[in-house]
């Protein structure tokens, strides 16, 4: 199990940041991802695995009018 923005989410081996974003249906493009406080570069979402028990923060910035 991992925590994403305070919500629990099932974990499975090899689950990447991209998988988490997809599962949470986070469609917004301006995201900042931190795993246990460590910043994940935007180009590495596909290759960064999320460890079991991790606290993932997926910060949405603002946009629009």
């Amino acid at each position: 199990m991992i925590s994403v923005n305070g919500e629990s989410l099932d974990w499975s081996p090899g689950k990447t940041v991209r998988d988490v974003i997809r599962e949470m249906n986070y469609r917004f493009p301006l995201l900042i991802v931190r795993i246990d406080g460590r910043l994940v570069p935007r180009g590495s979402y596909d290759s960064t695995a999320v460890p079991d028990g991790a606290e993932v923060d997926i910060i949405h910035l603002m946009s629009g009018g």
Partner: peptide, 10 residues
């Protein structure tokens, strides 16, 4: 416009 900060990012 604070919805993401408040509701999604907490």
């Amino acid at each position: 416009w604070l919805i993401f900060m408040d509701m999604v990012n907490k």
